[in-house]
Design a protein around this nucleic acid. Structure first.
Length: 353
DNA sequence: CACCCGTGGAC
DNA sequence: TGTCCAAGGGT
């Protein structure tokens, strides 16, 4: 089967089986020449970086309801956007999302650049996202390579070189299949195939539209591809967090520095997280008591065990760190997950009111 | 270029 | 419970 036939089969399959996703336009609209909204494409693609469709859906709806276009988002306050992103992870994406929206509003008159190169110059838009927006929103014949595409190419062409070494080869193979017509649909077809049929484990080769062309299947090694270098062991880090509540119900919280882990997010004051036993460092003078429970949470590259300390703080409390957030302004959903877990465990440790 | 950066679901 | 994994980008 020639490359053009493979691409044709993928597109035919996509036209029948394309998933109905909130950021996509329907086939009827597409046939009438309607293009997807670049803002919706950009927002969804950033949210989908290393994140599943199931996790993104509700966030996408909340963001577009609150900020319907890039100009509205550009005008939003940092804390509002970070709070709305809370729970989705990889918080540098939210910081760059705002930077990007403001750059588009200020430097591009509120319109996204319509080329890969133009998009690539914006914060939070890398090779994948630039190609995806250019292809999907602007009908540019760019080659889109994400984890799905790498897996599909590795299997289709039986590439046994492990990732990430194989990346350039897989990109070249994906480029061979990229058609001049409907490149955006082609890109989404390959990604949909990877997400629904050519899955990482137990791929459904029996119903695959390009089964006949698949060298991996022919050799019986499809499910073992792509090969990957073994990963290192995650260390365990320890830390303390202080959950202080003032008598009027206000919570003592702290905005984390813009860089690094959970950068720019709200959190409980506490120690650094290290592999050695933490040294106590309460953010205010008070009768801190151990909760007797700890948060266990796993990040990308380490496990965390976070011991919780709680205290009732006096009305005239002057904290050395952080600031009080009025009980009516405090939304637990504004917290990153590890901090929300701490709140869920500790809230019972305070007198109810 | 190697490392850093979240989270929840599947198995 | 532990491990792997997902529509990557920044530094």
């Amino acid at each position: 089967m020639r490359d053009a036939e493979v691409s044709r089969n993928l597109l035919d399959w996509y036209d029948v089986h394309a998933r109905d996703l909130p950021w996509r336009i329907g086939p009827a609209a597409r046939v009438s020449g309607v293009r997807p909204d670049p803002y919706a494409v950009w927002l969804s693609e950033v949210m989908l970086q290393q994140t599943t469709v199931a996790a993104v859906r509700d966030y996408f709806h909340r963001f577009t309801a609150r900020w319907p276009d890039v100009t509205a988002l550009a005008a939003a306050e940092d804390a509002q956007v970070m709070g709305e992103w809370a729970g989705l992870g990889y918080y540098a994406r939210a910081r760059n999302l705002l930077k990007c929206a403001r750059a588009v509003a200020r430097d591009h008159g509120g319109r996204f650049p319509d080329t890969r190169e133009g998009l690539l110059a914006l914060p939070g838009i890398g090779p994948y996202t630039a190609a995806a927006i250019a292809a999907i929103a602007f009908d540019r014949p760019e080659t889109v390579v994400d984890g799905n595409v790498e897996r599909v190419m590795a299997r289709l062409f039986a590439v046994e070189t492990p990732l990430p070494t194989a990346k350039p080869d897989l990109t070249a193979l994906a480029a061979r299949l990229t058609p001049a017509e409907r490149p955006g649909c082609h890109a989404q077809a390959v990604m949909d195939l990877g997400a629904t049929i050519c899955t990482p484990r137990s791929p459904a080769c029996g119903i695959c539209p390009v089964m006949a062309a698949c060298a991996g299947r022919a050799r019986g090694i499809a499910a073992d591809l792509p090969r990957k270098l073994p990963k290192g062991v995650k260390p365990t880090r320890l830390g303390l967090a202080y959950l202080g509540r003032r008598t009027d119900g206000a919570w003592l919280l702290e905005r984390r520095p813009d860089r690094g882990l959970l950068g720019g997010m709200l959190g409980w004051p506490g120690t650094d997280w290290a592999e050695t036993e933490p040294v106590s460092a309460p953010p205010a003078v008070a009768d801190w008591r151990p909760l007797g429970a700890e948060v266990r949470h796993t990040f990308t590259h380490f496990h965390l065990r976070l011991a919780l300390w709680v205290a009732d703080l006096p009305a005239d409390c002057a904290p050395a760190r952080g600031a009080f957030v009025d009980r009516h302004d405090f939304r637990p959903s504004d917290l990153p997950t590890v901090m929300r877990k701490a709140f869920d465990l500790a809230r019972g440790g305070f007198a109810s009111d």
